[in-house]
């Protein structure tokens, strides 16, 4: 659906990272883990295209104590101001209107069984994993869900307090050791996977391409199912411009698939990682 909504908050979560939210009544379309919205960052024709943002959190006062009143609910996004469009977005204030189209794209596939679920995040990739973590703990023991967050330094580790109430296991790594263990998140994943049988583990990852490529290759080595959330340029977000094609291997055959419609979540084995 498309709608213009009043912004509830647009606050800095960490230097250059923002959380933006607007009301999302219960009768609006249900949002699945990994889905995204296309938002208009400015009126007029420059910047022209909408920007894609993965849904971070969605819910009522249980999720957002800021919501004043029962029966209210909201959807929230976590983004990094990287360029012109997200820069415009960061300047928006509470009460300004935000025009959006969504929810769009596919969702993570929830496995039927599994004793270990590893959610591996880098940067704003974390945003697509919150709804997933909540979906997983609804059907699996909370101790089976493990969030691994990595970044260059302390300031890249975002929003952990949002995840703590879920009760899942959380590991933090930074390359400079300013928060959590020193090292790379992919090393943490690798050692964790060594301790579990392949057929009981599932990996879900969202973040920078080199990180996801590494997560994919570690999972592949251990023959563990891995789903990845891809990003890339998008013209429309809903399947009419064919501008978002990504290269996919289906049964060994090279194909283009629409990131916005067949994705953004793909099985890691299908993805062509290029030189990454």
């Amino acid at each position: 659906m498309q709608q213009s909504s009043k912004i509830l908050w647009n606050t800095e979560a960490s230097p250059n990272y923002y959380k933006i939210a607007f009301p999302y009544p219960e009768n609006y379309p249900a949002i699945g883990s990994g889905q995204f919205f296309m938002v208009r960052v400015a009126e007029g024709s420059d910047p022209l295209l909408r920007r894609a943002l993965a849904v971070y959190r969605v819910g009522g006062v249980d999720v957002f104590p800021e919501l004043k009143g029962p029966g209210l609910s909201a959807v929230e996004f976590l983004y990094r101001a990287v360029g012109r469009g997200t820069g415009f977005l960061a300047k928006k204030r509470e009460g300004d209107s935000l025009d959006w189209v969504g929810p769009l794209g596919n969702s993570y596939t929830l496995p039927k069984e599994g004793a270990h679920h590893y959610l591996v995040a880098g940067g704003t990739g974390l945003s697509s994993l919150y709804v997933l973590a909540k979906e997983l703990i609804k059907i699996f023991p909370v101790s089976s869900v493990h969030l691994m967050v990595g970044g260059r330094s302390q300031k890249d580790i975002l929003c952990l307090p949002d995840f703590e109430p879920l009760g899942i296991q959380i590991s933090v790594t930074t390359e400079d050791g300013t928060k959590g263990a020193r090292g790379r998140v992919t090393d943490v994943l690798e050692s964790a996977l060594r301790t579990v049988p392949s057929d009981s583990a599932h990996v879900y990852t969202a973040g920078p391409i080199p990180m996801m490529a590494k997560v994919a290759s570690i999972s592949k080595e251990r023959k563990i199912a891995c789903q990845v959330s891809l990003e890339g340029p998008m013209g429309c977000g809903f399947g009419i411009c064919l501008g978002c094609s990504v290269e996919i291997f289906e049964k060994g055959e090279r194909k283009y698939r629409l990131l916005c419609k067949h994705g953004p979540i793909f099985n890691s084995e299908e993805v062509y990682w290029g030189e990454a």
Partner: peptide, 9 residues
């Protein structure tokens, strides 16, 4: 069709 990236603003 052509290889990505296919569009730029």
């Amino acid at each position: 069709g052509n290889p990505p990236p296919r569009i730029v603003e």
